[in-house]
Structures are given as structure tokens and as C-alpha cells.
Amino acid sequence: MQATTLSAVLLVLTSLAGCAVEPWVKPYERAKLADPIMSFSRNPVAESYLHHVYQAREAARGAEGGQGGGCGCN
């Protein structure tokens, strides 16, 4: 059921990809966004390790931003 819902969402959003939307932030205006300090994951190894520590010490899990299927801790 969840997979079906997600597939439907993907289908709708993918169909939007062809729409001719005028980007409100032009490519030449994206210099600051491309600065490495704006990356959500500038240091993947160190950040995924810290998520790992939090997963081991906390009941909450998921939606950390990177990929993965939870901690697997028991």
C-alpha cells in the first residue's frame, strides 16, 4: 500500500518535470547555493557516523537526510 502511494506520488511529480516552469532563481543567481558551505551533507562520513551515534542512543530513527533504512540496533 505504501509502495503504491509512493509510486503514485513519483508518477505525478515526474509528470511535472516536463512542465515549462520559469525558474524564479536563475542559473546565474545560484553562486551562493553552489558554495560548499551550503551543502546539506558536506562531510558524509562524519555526518553519517554522528547519525549512527544518535540512532544508538535514541528511539527515534529515519528521515535523517541521507539514505538508509534505520539503525538495526537491538
Binding site: 551533507s41 558524509p44 562520513v45 555526518e47 553519517s48 557516523y49 547519525h51 549512527h52 551515534v53 540512532q55 544508538a56 535523517e64 541521507g66 539514505q67 538508509g68 533504512g69 534505520g70 539503525c71 538495526g72 540496533c73
Partner: peptide
């Protein structure tokens, strides 16, 4: 400390 999610 399991790290299933380290694809990062």
C-alpha cells in the same frame, strides 16, 4: 553501533 545507512 550499527550503521545501516552508511551509503551517505
Amino acid at each position: 553501533l550499527l550503521l545501516i545507512g552508511s551509503f551517505a
